[in-house]
């Protein structure tokens, strides 16, 4: 996974402010969090000399579908659908103890993770423990993933 310095290195580093941010570093931080997209940097898009950087960044910050408010991303191409996160997620366990919490297919609509067509889908993310006022740095879904298919940005 990309870090903010790697992203910064690929930006124009001119602090031109055309994107509305005060520095390229600020833009990099927002890009990592998917708050902005690569195309929000006009020089990067328009200036031929940044073409390599643009292409590299577009690849790195692949438009991931379903980046949620909690910053939870599922890389579907890596997911094997093992359901470890489904069963390990404390919210899933609390909301569906006899289904997801017991290793079986979820039986409640209130679960965050659910495997569909062999890959995990995240929903009800507002329930995630990393979200809201009393958030904690829960890593149950990340630590139990054999292919590093889940990350938070």
């Amino acid at each position: 996974m990309a870090n903010v310095m790697e992203i910064y290195q690929l930006l124009p580093k001119t602090n031109c402010k055309e994107c509305g941010k005060s520095t390229c570093m600020a833009f990099a931080v927002d890009l990592l969090a998917r708050k902005v997209s690569v195309d929000d940097c006009p020089p990067l898009v328009n200036d031929a000399k940044y073409k390599a950087g643009y292409e590299k960044l577009s690849e790195m910050i692949a438009p991931v579908s379903g980046v949620t408010d909690t910053g939870l991303i599922v890389h579907e191409d890596k997911c094997i659908g093992c359901g470890n996160c489904v069963v390990a997620c404390p919210v899933n366990v609390a909301n569906d103890p006899l289904g997801a919490g017991s290793g079986k297919a979820p039986t409640s609509d209130k679960v965050i993770f659910k495997v569909e067509d062999g890959v995990v889908k995240a929903r009800n993310v507002q329930e995630c423990r990393r979200f809201g006022e009393n958030r904690i740095l829960c890593v149950a879904c990340i630590d139990t993933c054999p292919t590093k298919a889940i990350e938070f940005v």
């Binding site: 659908g81 093992c82 390990a88 404390p90």
Partner: peptide
């Protein structure tokens, strides 16, 4: 099993809660 029997750990052997294993893996 993560490659040969992908749900082995989640359904039975490591992550699920069970009668005598109520507190998680």
């Amino acid at each position: 099993p993560s490659n040969s029997h992908p749900r082995h750990l989640s359904r039975y052997s490591y992550f699920p809660r069970g009668k005598e294993r109520q507190r998680g893996w």
